[in-house]
Design a protein around this nucleic acid. Structure first.
Length: 437
RNA sequence: GUCCCCAUCGUCUAGCCCGGUUAGGACACCACCCUUUCACGGUGAGAACCGGGGUUCGAAUCCCCGUGGGGACGCCA
């Protein structure tokens, strides 16, 4: 069998959204699975609505997701150009074929395609046999001379030798128009595979670019991991048929196939995506996590007053990595590491300072920390434990007021890690400050 | 309205093709355990075969009809 050639053909008329990304992903996965070719083609025949900025959104999002294209803009290829706005002579040539065959007529300045009216049957790789009869002639060239989607889509698929058309189910009823054209050109039909749509998570209808969580760029900006998004996305409408969920990309590629794609629309669930992202985040190597955190905090302008020292920043982030579910939690979670002017949670304060004699305990804790070895968590733990033994109190009698004093909250990373990273000076100063109130 | 597609927990899904399962997993939610924080993790609970007819000894599974959901009906793509 000849090599699989699939294409992703977005129109740069809006932002790149989750449905487009999933379509791109399925095409890419199928190409990689079969050792085929993944082609990026830009469908920019509607001059009114296209902008260069939107084009870059497509390139950036695909690149961020890791969906590299073998042929297309920037990549080149022997079937180019890959932007429809640059292929007008090809469309003119194919239009002539239709004219010569007597399959067109002009009305009000637009060129119409004369349908055959025969039932159009496809053997969809996902849906099986689908039959639909096209009932009306349709416009293939606008009165301003520009070719319409249906024409260019088919001509490009023919000339680029596309073997499999993997696209959203919203195109299923367009398919009869397309097969009419393929037949009029005397070209063999590609294999069609209409994948289910992604429905918005609240309310009726398919996900649109205006819906919450729809834009790919947003995930990049929120510090999501592209591999987590890819893993989540591949499970929307496809299943490996066992209980596997988190899978390395190589495994997804190996297992992905068209018969495994569902026929049912899937509702987008941001909670599950967030969970997938957390699982990936937890296992990130230190350098990657720190880089992600740095990019995010930089974007959030967290350190307007000046960027903290690299080593310190790294310590803070790595201390927090096992505790946060997303990069987005980091600014609030780590705020007190970077300023003395942090808020004290009144609820935590009431709870911690309301019973026993916490101030006496804080004094004892401070005494122990004055001479403690701050070079490791274990050494700090040992120092605190020794003080616990010396005064016959509970460990919690030190940890809870201590945490409140140095972080202003009752939640946070490991207490000893907290002490170590903050350092003796800051810790003692903060304890004294609370003692003074 | 016409045409096309679809139908298992709240959500993503396995099981359906090749009828016999305590209908499985994950997210979310709840409880408990772990941890003297929080999160992670662990254990457990609740939670589904859209309805009606057939076929069959037996139907989530096959067939039909409803109903529901989705999509398409542009000189948008």
């Amino acid at each position: 069998m000849s090599q699989v050639r699939v294409r992703f053909a977005p129109s740069p008329t809006g932002f790149f959204h989750i449905g487009s990304a999933r379509t791109a992903l399925f095409n890419w996965l199928y190409a990689r699975h079969t050792g085929g070719v993944f082609i990026l083609r830009i469908e920019d025949t509607d001059k009114e609505r296209n902008t260069e900025a939107f084009l870059n959104v497509i390139y950036n999002s695909l690149t961020w997701l890791g969906l590299n294209w073998d042929e297309g803009p920037k990549a080149g290829g022997q079937f180019g150009p890959y932007r429809q706005s640059e292929r007008t002579s090809i469309y003119r040539e194919y239009l002539e074929k239709l004219k010569a065959g007597g399959r067109t007529y002009e009305k009000d300045g637009a060129v119409y395609f004369k349908i055959s009216g025969e039932p159009q049957v496809i053997d969809d790789a996902i849906r099986g046999r689908v039959e639909r009869t096209e009932e009306k002639d349709f416009v293939i060239v606008r009165s301003d001379g520009s070719p319409v989607f249906h024409l260019v889509n088919v001509v490009d698929d023919i000339t680029m030798q596309i073997t499999h058309v993997i696209r959203g189910e919203d195109h299923l009823s367009n398919t009869s128009k397309h097969t009419e054209l393929f037949r009029a050109f005397g070209a063999p039909l590609p294999v069609y595979a209409h994948i289910p749509l992604i429905l918005k998570q609240n309310g009726p209808g398919k996900m649109s670019k205006r819906d919450q969580g729809a834009l790919i760029e947003e995930y990049e900006q929120r510090g999501y991991l592209p591999e987590a998004l890819v893993n989540f996305l591949c499970l929307l409408g496809w299943s490996p048929k066992d209980d596997s969920e988190k899978m390395p990309l190589a495994e997804i590629i190996r297992r992905f196939d068209l018969p495994g794609v569902n026929q049912t629309n899937a509702r987008f669930d941001e909670k599950k995506l967030a969970h997938m992202n957390m699982v990936y985040l937890l296992e990130q190597p230190a350098d990657r996590f720190v880089a992600l955190a740095r990019d995010y905090l930089k974007r959030k302008n967290t350190f307007a007053a000046g960027w903290p020292e690299d080593a310190y920043f790294r310590d803070v982030m790595l201390l927090s990595q096992p505790k946060v579910k997303s990069i987005e939690e980091l600014p609030a979670y780590t705020a007190y590491f970077f300023t003395e002017d942090f808020a004290v949670d009144p609820k935590a304060r009431d709870k911690v300072m309301g019973k026993g004699d916490p101030k006496a305990r804080l004094r004892e804790l401070a005494d122990a920390l004055k001479t403690a070895d701050f070079s490791s968590d274990a050494a700090l733990e040992q120092a605190v434990h020794a003080q616990v033994a010396a005064h016959g109190v509970g460990l919690g009698d030190y940890i809870h007021p201590g945490r409140l004093a140095i972080s202003g909250t009752s939640v946070g990373p490991s207490f000893y890690g907290l002490l170590r990273v903050l350092g003796r000076e800051r810790v003692l100063r903060r304890i004294e400050r609370l003692l003074a109130t």
